[in-house]
Design a protein around this nucleic acid. Structure first.
Length: 378
DNA sequence: GTGGTGGTTAATGTGC
DNA sequence: GCACATTAACCACCAC
């Protein structure tokens, strides 16, 4: 299940010189990221002994990062923060972060991760200067950044030439946003926000157009992509329909269930900012999995996300005989699997121990090592 | 050469 | 359709 209705992010992998490129797998596979057909760039391929092919492309924005992506990035960057400052080059670290992002279902190249991180820091600083102590919504985006920077400050071993500059921004603490129960998202202190999805649903006459927004508003925490807009920040509507409480980790959301099953799913996805393909389900307090429908019992539910199936994939050089690198890949759906194969120009996988060929997700074995299988003649 | 940073450009979203 | 806001992507500069 892919939870975004938007087209996949256009990932112009940029390796050197900040030129836009398309990542090409080293063993001659198809580009990992492909251009939409309607906007095919002029390709200027630069062969470099079996390495990446560079592709110049007109500037094209990738899909805007959603909350879950941004939080993953911050989390990963935070985990590796100590490594960043002991290394001359951080390139490989960003590659690791990018790889982990992909494992989570987010196609973001190292450069995209780097740029996002830089832009986040810039926004963070800008917001602090402009909205010092205002308790604005934007500040809550950066609570985790603030914590990271504060951690750095505490860490005496950490020495960065830019630390002093960064630190000049982290003395600020927005008390209105210190509440750890507010996990993420843009929080307008006085009211509710609107969501892109909300408006889209509304225009489509979707039965959950109001339910989704109001159920989330009831939690007081709109999803990451919600924007504050003039005219909707003052009033707080209470939702009068059937509402369940859904818990995911430490986060709890109230979800309106007066719509169809699909609408309820959308509401859950919106409320938690879910954008990956991972399947999910709800269990009640007796750990009974409940189907989503308007007649489901009211009460408290726990959200469970599919853990996926992780395999190892060994990539070979153009001769197909010399292993070049190994990647871990987590797959959630058959569609995920097919997409993974298609991007590399593979028709299936072959298990290295036993040489069993696999072309469906169900036949994959967790943690097993595979190599790509191409069509004969390719 | 690389990373950090500030500033800028431009694609895209949003409101009217 | 236009104006404006947001933000991904890019550039230039500096420090090391």
């Amino acid at each position: 299940m892919y939870l975004s209705e938007k087209p996949r992010p256009i990932d112009f992998y940029k390796e050197e010189g900040r030129d836009m490129m398309i990542e090409v797998v080293g063993n001659g596979g198809l580009p990992l990221q492909q251009q939409p057909q309607q906007q095919q760039p002029q390709m200027i391929l630069a062969e470099s002994s079996g390495e990446d092919h560079e592709v110049k492309a007109p500037k094209k924005r990738a899909e805007t990062w959603v909350q879950e992506e941004t939080r993953s990035l911050i989390s990963l960057r935070r985990e590796m923060d100590s490594l960043f400052n002991t290394s001359k080059s951080n390139k490989h670290l960003w590659e690791q972060i990018s790889a982990k992002m992909r494992e989570k279902g987010f196609d973001r190249s190292p450069t995209m991760c780097t740029d996002k991180w830089r832009n986040l820091l810039k926004e963070f600083k800008k917001a602090k200067h402009q909205e010092r102590g205002s308790g604005s919504a934007k500040m809550s985006y950066y609570k985790e950044l603030e914590e990271l920077l504060r951690d750095r400050n505490k860490n005496a071993a950490y020495k960065s030439p830019t630390l002093s500059k960064v630190d000049s921004y982290i003395q600020f603490s927005d008390k209105g946003l210190e509440d750890a129960s507010i996990p993420f998202g843009s929080v307008e202190a006085t009211g509710r926000s609107t969501l892109n999805l909300e408006r889209r649903l509304d225009h489509d006459g979707h039965p959950l157009a109001i339910t989704t927004a109001d159920a989330v508003a009831a939690s007081g925490v709109p999803p990451w992509n919600w924007r504050e807009t003039p005219g909707n920040g003052g009033e707080s509507h209470s939702y009068g329909g059937r509402v369940i409480s859904v818990k995911w980790g430490e986060y709890t959301r109230r979800i309106g269930i007066d719509g169809t099953a699909d609408a309820i799913k959308e509401a859950i996805k919106s409320a938690f900012g879910l954008r990956t393909r991972r399947a999910f389900w709800l269990e009640d307090e007796d750990e009974v999995v409940r189907s989503l429908d308007r007649d489901m019992p009211l009460g408290n539910y726990t959200l469970h996300l599919d853990e996926g199936l992780t395999i190892k994939v060994c990539f070979y050089d153009e001769s197909g005989r010399i292993p070049v690198r190994t990647e871990e890949k987590t797959l959630y759906t058959e569609e995920d699997f097919r997409d993974f194969l298609t991007r590399r120009g593979w028709t299936g996988l072959r298990e290295l121990s036993g040489f069993r060929s696999v072309d469906t997700l169900d036949d994959l074995r967790p943690c097993a090592m595979y190599q790509g299988v191409r069509l004969l003649g390719d």
